[in-house]
């Protein structure tokens, strides 16, 4: 099973949330996972209701059921570059001078590929890190990655820096990172909603990843809403059964104390709007079904997470993690 899980998807579909839930799910049963973010947005800290994450791996949660642990790290390209310089060139003060001059900012800005190599490089380092006994420090590393539109370029660091650095340590670093990212050790997961645009982006994004020979993992359909009524039932409510529905409605409302003398009139006014809402519901369900068909056409494992009506708090996050486990994400 893969150990580096890269979570992408259209903006706002729940990448950060799903990445966190996945990290929790993979940490169950005594495992240790590292959840990393790369866009400097402190999304993980917000989600776990903790203070701003430093550039340092720290424990932020225990897995559902106890035992396992989730660590978190906000990777910062500038810091990663300084670390890197320090590690390979012992550039203590020269490194700081470069930073002061704005060289590092310059380098990571003008060449986004360079920035990406540093970010993915750090994640790969965590994936391969071993303790003194030769065991992996983290069983899994989960990355809250850039959105679909940028993910292939982000991961395809080798191509991105090839034109910039044809030789030298950056070039070598890019190649080493690339080897991990293209290996079965990595899996890129796509988060989507069952709406037209996110589904389209998912399909296009997966095609791009495949073309770049990057390993695609699974699709996570997020914010799924339950199907409550189907079109045939709604048709019946609107036509043949309309009067009977009105009567049942009137009786039920009477039992629960709704309206008095005026009930008949009120109920009459309610039936059509209720049926109209049911129609919108079935229309939406039909569109969602089309989306599901497209996604299943991708031939990938698929997980579904329901829409949490009041947003995602910590309890909701654990629930999502349990759900992912139940659906076999850790298998």
């Amino acid at each position: 099973m893969s150990r580096l899980h890269v979570v992408s998807g259209k903006g706002g579909t729940g990448k950060t949330t799903v990445a966190a839930a996945l990290a929790l799910a993979l940490a169950a049963e005594g495992k240790r996972t590292l959840l990393v973010e790369v866009e400097g947005r402190q999304g993980i800290a917000q989600l776990f209701e903790t203070e701003t994450l430093p550039y340092e791996e720290r424990k932020i949660a225990v897995a559902p059921g106890g035992g396992g642990e989730v660590f978190a790290l906000a990777i910062d390209a500038e810091r990663a570059l300084l670390d890197y310089l320090q590690m390979f060139y012992k550039l203590g003060s020269a490194g700081r001078a470069l930073k002061k001059l704005g060289a590092i900012d310059f380098a990571t800005t003008i060449a986004p590929g360079l920035r990406d190599v540093l970010l993915t490089g750090k994640a790969c380092e965590a994936v391969r890190r071993k303790d003194r006994l030769g065991n992996f420090v983290y069983d899994h590393v989960v990355m809250d990655a850039p959105p679909t539109g940028r993910i292939t370029r982000f991961l395809n660091v080798n191509d991105e820096v090839a034109g910039l650095a044809r030789i030298g340590p950056i070039h070598n670093q890019a190649q080493a990172v690339m080897r991990v990212l293209k290996s079965p050790e990595t899996a890129v997961h796509m988060v989507t909603l069952l709406e037209e645009m996110p589904v389209q982006e998912t399909v296009d994004g997966i095609a791009e990843l495949r073309a770049a020979k990057l390993p695609v993992g699974s699709v996570v359909i997020n914010m799924v809403r339950p199907e409550m009524l189907d079109p045939a039932a709604v048709d019946i409510a609107a036509n043949g059964r309309r009067a009977a529905v009105a009567r049942a409605l009137s009786d039920a409302l009477a039992q629960t104390g709704f309206a008095g003398a005026d009930r008949a009139g009120l109920v009459e006014e309610l039936v059509d709007p209720l049926v109209a809402q049911a129609r919108e519901h079935t229309e939406r369900v039909a569109l969602e079904r089309l989306g599901r068909t497209e996604i299943s056409g991708l031939g990938l494992p698929t997980y579904e997470l329901e829409l949490l009506g009041d947003g995602v708090d910590l309890a909701g996050l654990y629930r999502m993690a349990r759900e992912l486990r139940k659906q076999g994400v850790a298998r």
């Binding site: 799924v224 339950p226 199907e227 409550m228 009524l229 189907d230 997980y303 329901e306 759900e323 659906q327």
Partner: peptide
Amino acid sequence: VGIVDRDSGQTGSRTADDPGTRTP
């Protein structure tokens, strides 16, 4: 006639044949 009853915990009929896309 397919009134998908939420309370029954059955949120979809596609469940059985495709566990991968099962609605939780």
